[in-house]
Design a protein around this nucleic acid. Structure first.
Lengths: 167, 167
DNA sequence: CTGAATCCTAAACGATACTG
DNA sequence: CAGTATCGTTTAGGATTCAG
């Protein structure tokens, strides 16, 4: 490897880091806006940044699928679980080995779970949650709250309609 | 409708509201925890509440699919767009009428967009964003930031590896 | 016990044509 | 202009079997 190649590689990484720092700053600016009008004004001033937008999609892809969120929740309760415990815990929901193992593999790959293999007979494998998964879960909680907030508004309307209903 | 039925209906709605208020409070408690250890401790004390957990999945379902997030982003820039504008704007990405119209329909149904039909010839239809969509977008931005934070860590490691690499 | 491999089904997606 | 209807394709998910 030549000196010039090394410099080029370092430059390339630094460029990516700079891009991402800029995107992070813009995200924070948007989140911090106090009202919707300001949000939209700021939004329209931010240049299109495909790499940043793709990151939201990639993040959602990491927890997409029918089982990942359910699996994550189970492990959160116990902090770490072995394969058979998870299987037993999720059997009532109808999960198959196929889905469980492939979901676990993807979540380990995504850095949401840590897989520990113990050299025992019979083999023991444990999955534990990572700090990255906990941070993600905080955001998922916000999503849940967002959904419920609007569900509550609908329920309030139903309530008022029911209370004023003629007999 | 009898008096007893009306009372029963009101009671049922109030029960649902109480459930959701409890879930919201627990969500907030979790989000407010300062460190991961506290998060997990609190998490394990919270009783299982399927309705609440389902809400996170429902929220994610509202923006799942190949096009919804992309469409939302486009409309955010302009605040309101007509069908043909959206179509033209997304044609380079390869969207078809089929996907665009069905996605729009679902997003209107979800309360993320408002559809306005103008009684003109030729017909004019505009889609505008709602306050609900803006609140959702703030959360999506947090997801993006979460993803990029860990991507940056990986880039930092690559950078260090590149800098210490022998020539 | 902890999965991977195979095959099959159902749902999402895409291409094309057509309409009020 | 703003869609819908139809049909073909791709992919996610499920059932079953087998292996280290």
């Amino acid at each position: 490897m030549k000196m010039s190649e090394k410099v080029l590689e370092i430059e390339k990484i630094n460029e990516k880091l700079t891009e991402r720092n800029g995107f992070m700053a813009n995200c924070q600016r948007l989140i911090d806006t106090e009202d919707d009008e300001t949000f939209l004004s700021v939004f329209s001033t931010i240049p299109d940044f495909p790499v940043g937008y793709a990151s939201a999609e990639k993040a959602m892809a990491l927890i997409s699928g029918k089982w990942k969120y359910t699996i994550l929740r189970r492990i959160f309760i116990r902090r770490r679980m072995r394969y058979s415990e998870l299987k037993k815990s999720l059997e009532a929901d109808g999960i198959t080995d196929n889905m469980l193992s492939s979901s676990l593999k993807e979540m380990v790959q995504a850095g949401l779970l840590t897989k520990t293999i113990y050299a025992e007979v019979p083999p023991r494998v444990e999955y534990s949650i990572t700090a990255k998964a906990i941070e993600l879960y905080r955001i998922i909680l916000r999503l849940a709250m967002w959904y419920i907030t609007y569900e509550k508004k609908e329920l309030q309307e139903l309530l008022e309609a029911a209370e004023t209903k003629d007999l």
